[in-house]
Deep mutational scan, measured.
Amino acid sequence: HYVEVNGKKIQATSAEEAEKIAKKFAKIYNATVLDLGNYYKVT
């Protein structure tokens, strides 16, 4: 599981952790979290 933010991949140990990381970055960048199955993308 990982999160992609601005083209950078951030490794996460679980889907739950990946979701938390994605939501945190989405809040910082006022962005949207896309759940793409095996990873989250912040756009």
Score class of each variant (00 low, 15 high):
Glu4Gln: 06
Lys8Ser: 09
Ala12Cys: 15
Lys20Cys: 15
Val42Thr: 02
Gln11Asp: 08
Gln11Ala: 12
Glu4Cys: 15
Val3Asn: 00
His1Lys: 11
Leu34Met: 10
Lys41Cys: 14
Lys27Val: 10
Tyr40Thr: 05
Ser14Asn: 11
Ala18Gln: 00
Asn6Tyr: 12
Glu4Lys: 04
Ala15Lys: 15
Glu17Asp: 09
Thr43Gly: 08
Ala31Phe: 08
Lys20His: 08
Tyr39Arg: 03
Ile10Trp: 08
Phe25Arg: 00
Gly37Arg: 00
Asn6Ser: 06
Ala15Trp: 12
Thr32His: 10
Tyr2Trp: 15
Lys27Trp: 11
Lys9Phe: 13
His1Pro: 09
Ala12Thr: 12
Glu4Asp: 07
Lys24Gln: 12
Ala12Asn: 02
Leu34Gly: 02
Thr43Asn: 08
Val3Met: 01
Ala31Asn: 03
Asn30Phe: 07
Glu4Thr: 04
Tyr2Cys: 09
Ala26Glu: 08
Lys23Ser: 09
Ile10Pro: 00
Val33Cys: 11
Ala31Glu: 06
Ala22Glu: 01
Ala18Val: 02
Lys24Pro: 00
Lys41Ser: 09
Glu19Asp: 06
Lys41Asp: 06
Ala18Pro: 00
Asn38Leu: 09
Lys24Trp: 15
Gly7Pro: 00
Asp35Gly: 04
Ala22Trp: 07
Asn30Lys: 09
Thr32Ile: 15
Lys9His: 09
Lys9Trp: 12
Asn38Thr: 12
Lys8Asp: 06
Lys23His: 12
Val5Asp: 00
Asn38Gln: 11
Gln11Val: 13
His1Val: 10
Lys27Ile: 11
Thr13Lys: 14
Ala18Ile: 02
Ser14Lys: 02
Tyr29Ala: 06
Phe25Gly: 01
His1Arg: 06
Lys8Pro: 00
Glu17Phe: 07
Ala12Glu: 00
Lys8Gly: 05
His1Thr: 08
Val33Tyr: 11
Glu19Cys: 15
Leu36Asp: 03
Thr43Ser: 11
Val3Gly: 00
Thr43Trp: 10
Thr13Trp: 09
Val5Pro: 00
Ala15Phe: 08
Leu34Phe: 05
Glu19His: 14
Thr43Gln: 12
Val5Arg: 00
Leu34Arg: 07
Tyr39Phe: 09
Thr43Tyr: 12
Ala15Pro: 09
Tyr29Asn: 05
Lys9Pro: 04
Val42Ile: 09
Lys27Ala: 12
Tyr40Cys: 11
Lys27Gly: 07
Ile28His: 12
Lys41Tyr: 11
Leu36Lys: 08
Lys8Ile: 14
Tyr40Met: 06
Ile28Ser: 06
Thr13Ser: 14
